[in-house]
């Protein structure tokens, strides 16, 4: 049984112009010790699906799912009390902007100990020593002094380390990292990713990494789920995905990597992710797809078999060549 099992997750936002579907029938399965990367452009709904799981979406959002199970608990039917005992303890999350994710009014130590106070039966002294130990674990020098510091006295990279320390404080079974690095310097980015992977290996927790950076995916993930316009369009093991992408969108994403470029001009995918008002009738990617045929503009594709990476495409690619038909 997977640790996290989400089936057909839909998230709608109430807007001034009616409902906007940000996540459209996404399935996510994460096993114990998995490293899953969720990739996609901005606006593909990758953060929203994880925020929905954590119950962190604003009140304008409505969440629907056939299944929303974590570690055998049905999160959809759980009451707030049960939810809160899981959130922050067994599932933890770190965010994109480390500087603004920490409360400016409280010391690092206060915010770190607070998480433990909420979930663990530790005494004040035990919490303090665990806090020091956690900061050492995430590689912050002089942990005792840092505990007394306020967030504005630390750099972005240090703040993200503190966020990670906070997230792993209660030894979670699943850590969700929502684009943890783009706000940081390139060298710091690599260090933070390395830290996350080391922690994952040491503790055996599962890791979900949300990113738009294919380079990060290649270095870190075991499995990759590609999202486009709120839908999961493909899911494969990382080697297979890079070697043989089945969905034209994944193919285009990989072709846009600078290291794969063959000409002087970087390849890109023309157009943008469809929004609320320009959702295509058939396949959501069809207006931007170089392989699109008539059928793609008319019929909504369903997921292909696992051998074809569950690609949501009428004509999945095999070795870069469009197949005739998926039955």
């Amino acid at each position: 049984m997977p640790l996290l099992d989400v089936r057909n997750l839909c998230v709608d936002f109430r807007t001034a112009n009616g409902l906007f579907r940000a996540v459209d029938g996404v399935d996510v399965q994460v096993n114990v010790g998995d490293v899953l990367a969720i990739v996609g452009e901005s606006g593909s709904g990758k953060s929203v699906s994880m925020l929905a799981l954590m119950g962190l979406l604003p009140w304008t959002a409505t969440i629907n799912a056939d299944l929303l199970h974590f570690d055998g608990v049905d999160l959809a039917s759980a009451n707030t009390q049960q939810r809160r005992s899981i959130i922050g303890k067994d599932v933890a999350m770190i965010f994109q902007e480390p500087m603004s994710s920490l409360n400016p009014c409280f010391t690092i130590g206060f915010q770190l100990r607070e998480t433990m106070k909420a979930h663990l039966p530790l005494s004040r002294r035990e919490r303090q020593s665990r806090a020091i130990q956690l900061l050492e674990q995430v590689g912050l020098p002089e942990p005792e002094r840092r505990l007394k510091a306020f967030p504005h006295q630390l750099s972005g990279g240090m703040c993200q380390r503190v966020m990670i320390a906070m997230a792993i404080a209660c030894k979670p079974k699943l850590l969700i990292a929502d684009e943890p690095t783009p706000a940081l310097d390139v060298t710091i980015q690599a260090q933070i990713l390395e830290l996350l992977l080391d922690l994952q290996k040491d503790t055996g927790m599962a890791l979900v990494l949300i990113t738009h950076d294919m380079g990060v995916v290649a270095e870190t993930a075991q499995r990759v789920s590609v999202q486009y316009a709120g839908q999961k369009v493909e899911e494969q093991g990382v080697r297979d995905l890079f070697a043989n992408p089945h969905h034209p969108y994944t193919h285009a994403l990989l072709a846009a990597l600078p290291e794969r470029a063959t000409s002087r001009q970087l390849p890109s995918i023309p157009g943008v992710v469809p929004g609320q008002f320009d959702r295509p009738k058939g396949c959501l990617f069809s207006p931007r797809c170089t392989y699109a045929k008539d059928r793609c503009f008319q019929e909504v594709p369903v997921a292909a078999p696992p051998a074809l990476g569950l690609a949501r495409c009428h004509y999945p690619l095999v070795d870069g060549i469009a197949q005739r038909e998926v039955s």
Partner: peptide
């Protein structure tokens, strides 16, 4: 709507602590 309020919620803190303190 600030990020740190989301962080407080992500820690599993109760509404009294999230709203009344953070």
């Amino acid at each position: 709507s600030e990020d740190y309020v989301r962080t407080a919620k992500a820690k599993g803190l109760g509404p009294l602590r999230v709203n009344g303190l953070h």
